[in-house]
Write a protein that binds this DNA or RNA. Structure first.
Length: 960
RNA sequence: GGGCCUUUAGCUCAGUUGGUUAGAGCGCACGCCUGAUAAGCGUGAGGUGCCUGGUUCAACUCCAGGAAGGCCCA
């Protein structure tokens, strides 16, 4: 007879092999078909809301691994909050305007662009954005991210654009808005402003000149040794044409400067660290240091301009370096980024006397009308003529060039729009708002605080086509700009209906409210502004464009969740726009994650070849593995990814999957409604398992509460391996397989298993959303369950399953089990036994420990999974077991070696006083349950079967 | 160059307020099983706690300096 057929072996349709890349799309299809997102919304009506407001990714290109990390994290936050008693809707969004798209479209259009109107270009850009919104949408869905995908927010939608105008209007009307000059990259061939991303650095030969600036101020009071000398600050530059715009000479406040006499009573001042280099460049061999000069004492002193009859002050600036030059830096605030910044500090004019063609304007003495690069030699000649040029060479260096025409570009100040950090107290408002927010991790607060504290005014204008127009008019009579509440209301209304294209299509009779007159000069003819808004303003106001416009969302959001770069980006622009218009932050909390780096912790880059695309992982391993990777990582730091890490995660995934599968297999004939055993009637070990399960629930819920998904992962995984695999499930096999199918003892185990799986599956649902759903579908009692695990709630700690007294005893048994395992391993090594069921275990228990374990003595055989357990009472102990180890330092197991015989006792170190002896179990091995028992062979018919199994068989026969 | 941050076994992570021999799982090695089987179980070996100083009876933990890496500026 084939006794295997009489066993209750696991049986389930749940496949061991996950085939994630095939199965996941099916799960997604089903979610779509049953309208899962809508069902969740419906089922959670009236619950407290949790609003995670999505930061809009830029609608350009495929998603990368960092985007995937971000979106999956968001999904886990949403799902765990949703399953935690909240109503957590998720409205994804996209950032659609801006340079990268316009730049892409520019490249695709090539020369065709020249003949196109702005509106036509904008149409192309819109189509481009639309395309990538769809591409990315599918990619996000594939990650298992659940949300309102059929109604996302787009920053280019009419209603959104109208909101942008209204929010912009608030800054215009509260006095924050102003116009000022700022240097930007300018291509004088294309006559256009360029963004940083549009300049390419190429080698170019430029002049390299040293110029002396005669010091006007007498500093001999501070430096007596310089009395009566002719003092000069020496500067070095590669752009002689910017000398006419020089307004200052900058020194570093912390560098050492020296005054050096070079003969003829001429004294040059420069940084000590660059003295030798400079002297060599100037060809001066003999010189004498007369004094050390403290740069702080030179601040605000004056020099003559080397060309003109005006004076330039000495200023202090930290951007001065010792890499090249003299440590005295020619400063033209209208022609350099750092010059501009320091110019603001010293209230210098942003002077930039160059027109759109790159020519000096009419009032520039000597050089009016000259193209700047042609003016280089003229400037040098004039300097030489005036005796202020002291060296002239040329240099090869990298210089910015226009991406389109490849000509060198210049830095040139142009009129820009700014939102002031001070005029309406924006900086102070924003700083105050920061402390109303919970920053996770906490250092996010200091980071953004420092940024807001130090940032310059917000330059919000761009000379581009693809964006939201700055709604402003200029009076043709007096030139003043005009922005009024009426204009904002009127234009935002137009945008709401027609979109922002109308700004470029319609004329002022449409764009201006009827009867608009200039309040300054009463003029009534106007010109509209052509600049567009910085896209950070677009996305910055999403809190109002999205949260305030959908009645199922709330303002402020409960959470913003983005990478840590967004302290300078979206968190920042959202804070400014909300603080300025509403006086508080648009978020209650801000959670940031690190960046994805490679296995060595280094940044991913194409050139390093260490980039891993999400699609690659999805195709090879499945989206679930990507989700598990996100869950397993501590996102507060940078997150590593590598083949090795993915391999580890697939192993971990299989473990969780197989554990679920094994339980499902043993629940194949279990109907929870009909077969469950009341808790009080369950076996102790099953009750202990339920007690331990509550520990998992407690830990996992706490981890979810604080968004520590990696703790959930570790707890869940360790639970599968330790609590279940290494103990409970292993012990349970004998009972599940060999007991009568409907027996109380087997039903008791199944009741526990059902609760365990039901708990596990809901705990894993926010992380392993696909697999949890798959398990859910295979669980017994499906007809009385929700259609999806994602419609259920996280398990709560069930107090009725807590029994500390019982748990205490069983923890001791577990400890004992560990020691027995070691003894068995030793015996295996000595070939006394193979499988544990070959063994009989004899224990000599220390008194106190023995008392604890005693009530469960009969269960030890099954807990150890051995054939027999003998417990020796203290007085019965053989002498060799009773005597303490000769010395505590002696290695384990050696205590018994002095005694002859193969079954030396194992002497425990974990439980002092415990000795374990392993012998081959007496009796034959039962063919059915594999336990060695003396009763095997007693039955005439079933000669290879033990008494216990015989009983089961007999009972089965009767039933049959 | 500046601001913020990170650094614990090969990997992913734990480690209360400074206090015994720094933990877990995986991976690895060895063994068992073949009734979770492209599975399962057991045992074991792995750590200069990034480095250097300092405070302290005592430092992975506190302080200073440095290194490597990351984000944001310049």
């Amino acid at each position: 007879m084939d006794y295997k057929q009489t066993l209750n072996l696991p049986k389930t349709a749940f496949p061991m092999k996950a085939s994630l890349s095939q199965r996941e799309p099916e799960v997604l299809k089903r979610w779509q078909a049953i309208g899962l997102y809508g069902q969740i919304r419906e089922s959670s009506k009236g619950r407290p809301r949790f609003i995670l407001h999505d930061g809009p990714p830029y609608a350009n290109g495929n998603i990368h691994i960092g985007t995937a990390l971000n979106k999956i994290l968001k999904d886990m936050v949403i799902r765990s909050r949703q399953m935690n008693g909240s109503d957590a809707p998720y409205v994804p969004g996209w950032d659609c305007h801006g340079l990268p798209i316009e730049h892409q479209v520019d490249q695709e259009l090539g020369d065709k662009k020249k003949g196109m109107t702005r509106v036509e270009i904008r149409k192309q850009c819109r189509a481009y954005a639309e395309k990538y919104v769809e591409v990315q949408k599918e990619e996000f869905k594939r990650l298992g991210v659940l949300g309102e995908w059929d109604n996302p927010y787009l920053t280019m939608k009419h209603s959104y654009v109208a909101t942008i105008v209204r929010e912009f209007g608030k800054f215009a009307l509260d006095g924050s808005l102003f116009k000022s000059k700022k240097p930007i990259y300018w291509c004088s061939t294309c006559k256009t402003a360029l963004a940083e991303a549009e300049v390419e650095y190429e080698m170019r030969t430029s002049p390299s000149i040293y110029v002396k600036f005669p010091l006007v101020s007498d500093i001999s009071g501070d430096f007596p040794s310089l009395k009566g000398k002719k003092l000069y600050l020496i500067i070095w530059t590669t752009t002689p044409w910017t000398i006419p715009a020089n307004l200052a000479v900058a020194l570093h406040p912390a560098f050492e400067y020296v005054a050096v006499e070079i003969g003829r009573d001429e004294v040059f001042i420069m940084a000590r660290g660059l003295l030798e280099n400079t002297m060599e460049a100037l060809g001066i061999k003999e010189y004498e240091i007369l004094a050390q000069v403290d740069p702080m004492r030179l601040e605000h002193k004056l020099c003559y301009h080397p060309l003109y009859k005006r004076q330039s002050p000495v200023i202090l600036a930290r951007h001065v370096t010792l890499d090249a030059g003299t440590g005295c830096v020619h400063t033209a605030p209208g022609h350099g980024r750092e010059d501009y910044e320091v110019g603001l500090d010293y209230n210098l004019d942003i002077y930039s006397p160059v027109d759109d063609d790159g020519r000096f304007v009419y009032d520039v003495e000597f050089f009016a009308g000259m193209f700047v690069f042609d003016a280089n030699s003229a400037v040098m000649a004039k300097l030489a003529e005036l005796g202020t040029l002291i060296s002239k060479e040329s240099i090869e260096h990298t210089y910015p060039h226009c991406w389109r025409c490849k000509e060198p570009v210049i830095f040139r100040a142009t009129e820009q729009w700014f939102i002031s950090m001070e005029k309406a107290g924006l900086r102070q408002k924003a700083l105050r708002c920061i402390d109303q927010v919970t920053w996770i991790p906490a250092w996010g607060r200091d980071r953004i605080y420092g940024m807001i504290e130090n940032r310059p005014d917000w330059c919000i204008s761009r000379q581009r086509s693809w964006g939201v127009p700055i709604v402003a008019f200029y009076c043709k009579e007096c030139g003043k700009y005009l922005i009024t509440r009426e204009i904002i209301d009127h234009v935002s209304g137009l945008f709401e209906l027609h979109g922002a294209d109308i700004w470029f299509e319609a004329d002022n009779s449409v764009l201006l409210p009827e009867g608009t007159t200039c309040p300054e000069c009463k003029g009534n003819t106007f010109e509209k502004e052509e600049d567009i808004l910085d896209v950070w303003f677009d996305s910055g106001v999403s809190h109002t464009a999205v949260l305030e416009s959908r009645d199922y969302l709330t303002w402020p959001a409960d959470m913003y969740l983005e990478g840590s770069d967004q302290h300078r980006g979206w968190f920042h622009s959202a804070l400014l726009t909300a603080a300025g218009t509403r006086g508080r932050a648009p978020y209650e909390s801000v959670l940031t994650h690190g960046f994805v780096v490679d296995g060595k912790g280094e940044k991913m880059s194409k050139s390093k070849g260490n980039v891993i695309a999400p699609s690659e992982i999805i195709n090879r391993y499945g989206g679930e593995i990507l989700r598990l990777w996100v869950a397993a990582s501590d996102y507060q730091d940078d997150v590593r990814i590598s083949e090795k890490i993915l391999k580890q995660l697939t192993d971990a995934y299989r473990r969780i999957r197989n554990t679920s599968r094994f339980i499902l297999g043993n629940l194949g004939d279990f109907d929870p409604e009909a077969d469950a055993i009341p808790y009080r009637n369950m076996l102790e070990i099953d009750r202990f398992a339920l007690h331990r399960l509550q520990g998992l629930v407690r830990q996992a819920r706490a981890a979810y509460d604080s968004f520590e998904f990696h703790a959930v992962y570790h707890d869940l995984y360790n639970y599968c391996t330790l609590d279940l695999g290494a103990f409970y499930l292993d012990v349970l096999k004998d009972r599940l397989y060999t007991s009568p199918a409907t027996s109380t003892v087997r039903r008791s185990a199944q009741t526990a298993l059902n609760t365990i799986l039901d708990t596990m599956v809901r705990l894993m649902a926010p992380i392993l959303s696909f697999t949890a759903e798959e398990v859910w579908a295979h669980m017994p009692g499906t007809d009385v369950r929700s259609a999806s695990v994602h419609l259920t709630q996280l398990p709560e700690v069930n107090e009725t399953f807590l029994d500390d007294e019982l748990a205490g005893r069983w923890e001791s048994i577990l400890l004992l089990r560990g020691e027995v395992s070691k003894a068995l391993e030793e015996a295996r090594g000595q070939k006394i036994v193979g499988h544990a069921l070959d063994a009989a275990v004899t224990l000599s228990l220390p008194e106190e420990f023995g008392a604890v374990v005693k009530p469960n003595a009969d269960e030890l055989r099954t807990v150890f999974i051995v054939s027999r357990v003998n417990i020796l009472a203290g007085e019965e102990l053989p002498a060799r077991l009773a005597s303490p180890p000769a010395s505590p330092e002696r290695e384990r197991g050696r205590a018994g070696e002095s005694v002859a015989g193969r079954s030396d006792a194992y002497r425990s170190t974990g439980i002092p006083g415990l000795a374990v002896r392993i012998d081959p179990a007496p009796g034959e091995k039962c063919e059915r349950c594999w336990i060695h028992d003396r009763s095997v062979g007693a039955d005439g018919l079933h000669k290879t079967i033990c008494a216990r199994c015989l009983k089961v068989l007999k009972a089965g026969e009767r039933v049959m």
